[in-house]
Structure formats: structure tokens, C-alpha cells
Design a protein around this nucleic acid. Structure first.
Lengths: 223, 223
DNA sequence: TCAAAAGTGTTCGCAATACACCCATGC
DNA sequence: GCATGGGTGTATTGCGAACACTTTTGA
């Protein structure tokens, strides 16, 4: 423990949101490019201060929506980072969240506060500001863990999907290959998905299309 | 609850610590009795504000030590509670922690701020102030979950213990009976404990005494 | 007819579960 | 000698892991 805390110097509360999606067969996360020194060349997670009139959860929703324009997506608190010197601008305690967006076409919004917004392959992340690499690692780890005992993956896929797409999402998050037959056996035995009686049309053998029976988070033993 | 929060009225950061121990064959948690209205008859988790010069983790350690006098015990962040109206005294965002104390003889310290401090059987908790019942439920759930994939239980037992004591700790936390033979088989096959060559002496058949091979937190598949 | 992805079963080994009786001690 | 908790083994079952070939389509 360090010296006696100063009594009236209060910390400020912020949120940071790690946003994941699956796109082009990659697991991606959304980053914004900062303007302010000393981080004017750095990318960072979207986020910002918590207002006096909003709950911390609401602040996270608000910042998330500012960048993506999307409402009603999966959002869960991760961890609170409270080191004294984590932000060079002053004492900021940050509550980190992670969000999942169904793959596909979101038009990103750059605001005046940032130089840029973009999706990055989780395997090719540029240097990040603050302790954001730590936050990202933490988020990925949590996502991986939750894959094992919930149906959380349904928040990353479109309403209709093939089993191969589903398996691909698992493989990206777990960062390893899964046996196709075992995967299908498992998924089907869990009863999480149902055939909707449609098939894909492309240059290959048509694939059965599925949908989730349940989109709200439930516990399910996957591994 | 009270009036509308103004835009630039910053929240204050506090910590709350759920402290568990095993004593007299019960899982217990430490509560303090408050003095301030409207909670002057209520019990609550120990906690308090985060100082400007200390990290949030350090604040948790400090408040924990103030009540128990113990250092170097297991302490882990749980969750951050950020609802606007959770505290009638003003906007307080609370980072909850949970701590584990090896059973046995800690002399509790009442400070001037509180009426009383005491251990409560987790199955007989009085009405709690704020959202503290929610925090306690959350902490117990986390403890239960971690029992399944870590050696966390070693933070609740004395250095030397019998397998029956160990099993008892598992049963209290999981709130269910475990088969004795299966439990012993599992524990021994995990290699977490070793015989130290001593036996208990009481009115019954002497029991083999064990110690943990490893006291730092490691991942272990228990269930 | 070829390339590309879809789809499909069986075997094996291990780990989880269920289950009941004898043992050592102090009183 | 009895009450109390300590200590032990086996049989069954279900689940995870490994493994390769055939099918369907569009180009």
C-alpha cells in the first residue's frame, strides 16, 4: 500500500467497451484512433466518462451506440481497472465492458473527438493506448470462457446461419480447430438450434440453414 | 429516490468487501452494523471510499485490514455496481471484492464508524443495507464457480487439515452433500494435497492430516 | 469433370456416479 | 462395548476424442 490517500481528490469514472464481431472469417474488434497527446498516434477502445445522471451500464450503452449506431446488443461488464497512474490525464477509474455484434454491415461513425474508427483482426492489433491491450486480452479470455458454458455465440451470428459458420465462430474465438463431426453432434444434441428449412445457394453443395431457438443468455455445457 | 443528478456531478468511488470464512462447520461472512440513517439498524458489508492516492485494489485491502487486522489474504474483484440510486447519500459507484480468510481466531475490530462487527452464517443473513444482498449473492456464486476450476478452497482452510474438513468446506460452499469416496478419489488424484505424517487426536479414529502443495491460485478441473 | 464445401457413424478410453461396510479411538 | 467419525473399492454409464469418405452443387 502506498501513502495515505488524499481525502478530497476524487477519481473520475469512465467506461471502455471492447466490441467484438465476426466478419470475413475473422474475429474483429472495433478501435478508435485518438487525437489527444500523448496518444495521438494510438488506437484505443471506444469509451468515455460516466455522466452524473446515468448508471455505469447506461454510460457503456451510450458510448457503444455513439460508435456503432446499434441498439440492443449484448453488453456485459468485464472488470474495473483502478490503478492510480493508468491514465496520464488524471485519476480515472475505468469500468470495462464487452459487447458482441452480429457479423455484418454496420456503418461506423467517426465523431469529432477521434481521427478514425475501424475494425481490426484480433490477431493483428496495433499498439494500444493506456492499458487497453490488457483490457482486450481480458475480454477475449472472458469470451472464450463463456463460449464453454453459455449460448453467448448467438450474439455474434446473424439470425440465420449454417453450422459451418457457427463452427467457424467457435474456432475463431477459441483459436483452434474443432472436429466437424464432433462439433455438429454436440451442437445438435444441445438443442440450441433448429433447421428453418432453407438452404444456401452458392458454388457448392447447399448447406442447411439454422436459427437459434433461444437468443437470451442461458447456461449450457458446451465444454 | 432523491433529486435528479446534475450533469457535472461526479460520482464517488467506493469499495465493498465480502469476506468469507469457514467456522464451526458453517460458511460465514463478516458484516458491520451501521450507524447512519436510514440504515442505522442495518447490517452491511465492510467498505468505504477510495482515496485519491490509492488504487481501487489497495482501497479494498485497506478496508479489509481495518476490520480484520489480517494482511495477505485472498482478495479478488467481483463486480462494479453503478446504479444511480443505489446509495441514498449520493452518487456512489461501488467496486465489490471478495476475500477469503482461513477459518479461525481473528479478533474483529469495531471502529468508531460502526456499532458492531460480527460473523454471520451465510444461511442466516439479516436484512442488509443498500444493494448488499445482491453483492453477497454474487460473491457466493463466484466462490461456488471458482471452486470448480481452481484450488481457491486453500484460502479458506488452515495450513493443516483433514480430508473431512476439506470436504466440509466444499459442501458448505456448494450447499450440497458430496459422496465421501468419490471426493477423496478426486482430491487425491488432482495432487493438490499431501500427507504431512500427522494424525488428529480426539474421541474418534485419528484422521490423516494434509497440507496443500500449492497455495497460490491455479486452475484445476474439479467439476 | 473438377473444385469446394456439406454432411455423416463408430470405436475407444476415461472419468463421473452410485453404492456399503469395516476400522480406530476415547469414553 | 459403544458411539463417533475415518477410511476404503468396484461396477456401470455417459461423454469426449479420434478418425475418412461420400454427396451435392456451380462453374
Amino acid at each position: 500500500m502506498n501513502n495515505v490517500p488524499k481525502k478530497y481528490e476524487h477519481a473520475v469514472i469512465a467506461v471502455d467497451v471492447v466490441i467484438f464481431t465476426v466478419e470475413e472469417g475473422k474475429l474483429k474488434t472495433l478501435l478508435i484512433k485518438m487525437k489527444k497527446s500523448p496518444y495521438e498516434k494510438s488506437w484505443a477502445m471506444p469509451g468515455g466518462l460516466v455522466g452524473g445522471g446515468e448508471s455505469v451500464d447506461d454510460a457503456a450503452k451510450r458510448h457503444l451506440q455513439d460508435k456503432t449506431g446499434v441498439k440492443n446488443i449484448f453488453l456485459e461488464q468485464l472488470y474495473t481497472f483502478g490503478e492510480v497512474d493508468r491514465d496520464p490525464f488524471g485519476r480515472v477509474v475505468s469500468v470495462a465492458y464487452f459487447a458482441l455484434i452480429p457479423s455484418a454491415g454496420i456503418k461506423l461513425k467517426t465523431t469529432a473527438d477521434y481521427q478514425d474508427v475501424a475494425w481490426f483482426d484480433i490477431k493483428k492489433i496495433p499498439p494500444l493506448a493506456y492499458d487497453h491491450q490488457k483490457i482486450l486480452d481480458y475480454a477475449w479470455r472472458r469470451l472464450r470462457a463463456k463460449l464453454g458454458y453459455t449460448n453467448i455465440v448467438c450474439n455474434l451470428l446473424p439470425d440465420e446461419f449454417t453450422l459451418s459458420q457457427l463452427q467457424n465462430a467457435y474456432e475463431l474465438i477459441l483459436d483452434k480447430k474443432i472436429d466437424k463431426r464432433n462439433f455438429r453432434k454436440k451442437i445438435l444434441s444441445l438443442g440450441l438450434v433448429k433447421k428453418i428449412g432453407k438452404k444456401t445457394k452458392d458454388a457448392h453443395r447447399p448447406a442447411e440453414i439454422f436459427a437459434f431457438n433461444e437468443k437470451k443468455l442461458i447456461n449450457v455445457k458446451f465444454f
